[in-house]
Design a protein around this nucleic acid. Sequence first.
DNA 1: CCTTTAATGTTGTCGGCGCTCACATTGCGG
DNA 2: CCGCAATGTGAGCGCCGACAACATTAAAGG
Lengths: 196, 196
Amino acid sequence: MKKDSYHHGDLANELLAAALKIVERQGADAVSLRDLAQNLGVSRAAPYRHFPDRDALLAAVAARGFEDLVEAYESVLADRELPGAEVLRRGWLVYLDFARRRPGLFQLMFDSDFLGRDKPPKVMVPPADRAYHLLWEGMRRAHPQADDATIKMRTATAWSTIYGYIALDRANRFKTFMIRPLSREAVAKAVLAASC
Amino acid sequence: MKKDSYHHGDLANELLAAALKIVERQGADAVSLRDLAQNLGVSRAAPYRHFPDRDALLAAVAARGFEDLVEAYESVLADRELPGAEVLRRGWLVYLDFARRRPGLFQLMFDSDFLGRDKPPKVMVPPADRAYHLLWEGMRRAHPQADDATIKMRTATAWSTIYGYIALDRANRFKTFMIRPLSREAVAKAVLAASC
DNA sequence: CCTTTAATGTTGTCGGCGCTCACATTGCGG
DNA sequence: CCGCAATGTGAGCGCCGACAACATTAAAGG
């Protein structure tokens, strides 16, 4: 692959892969285009041939995160035999596991305001939209007879609870006034109970 | 106040006030010690006489945010006549209002990982702890006969829901797959219902 | 009242960063 | 085979946080 010469060959993908690693291990703030370029043996200006700016690279990383998340969630939905409530429960566990295993990436995906901007990065809109749709889908499986407004309402509150729990736990907020944080299972159970 | 000469007079407080304004209007990322110094008519190095580094200044801003939040929450708890459930509901509204009116500050207080560090900044630990304690206090008022473990559990889940809703709404996450976000009242109501 | 001392502010400097521009090299399609 | 677009280079700009050496002032104590 590497020509070991003027042209790198696959710089765009390697930049993305390297940035993804940094994001997962140290968080998005630790991503430096200069660092990345140097580590890939390329000049500091080279990355700008593939990504207009730093945010574009991070958006691409976030998009990939959404794709992974969607894939995991879809594997839960794929089992048409599973009872609706169990689909919902396992779906939340997918989120909790993702957030626990790849905290930096999760934070980039949901805490960065890419999607709240006037012009959200086009690479991450489709996978992000798909991820949201799957939440709705899971809730619909759990409540087949509920009307759309109810499903949306329940999805919003349950998703808020899960997301909030993840964020608060990540920041060690529970340690200060609780004996210890709740287990993943306990949270999924509580949310599930609240959405029924 | 201003001597218009070598010594500024109250640089520490003015730095804090100026930083607070920036945080509220543009978010913590927009805070630059150099900018602050210049706007206060002082040299770039002067701020370092009062705050060891940028994080220390931001921590002080966050601490002040917690103090304001505590004050608002305490005014709810102060009314001993109020029914417990109403105390709880108004308490959550305090959080929702604070987050809506001062989003940058709220984000600095809860999304920054100051409190998750090995050595959290000592200025913000007491007010932050107090804020958490008040949540517990509010929940206890709503459920006087519940045991401590139950109260903690309910506080954790309700707090997760509120916090998650704030974060998701702030980032415009609901717009994408919902018709429109829920009203503050609806969220408070849903959380209240879930904690009873 | 004067001197010493600690507090406070200044200038200069370093390294790191994102980003841009003019230029160099390469690979590919006509 | 050639020309052009894609890709990589090096230099440089402005911004930033942080530190060190030095200047000025306020306050404390004789």
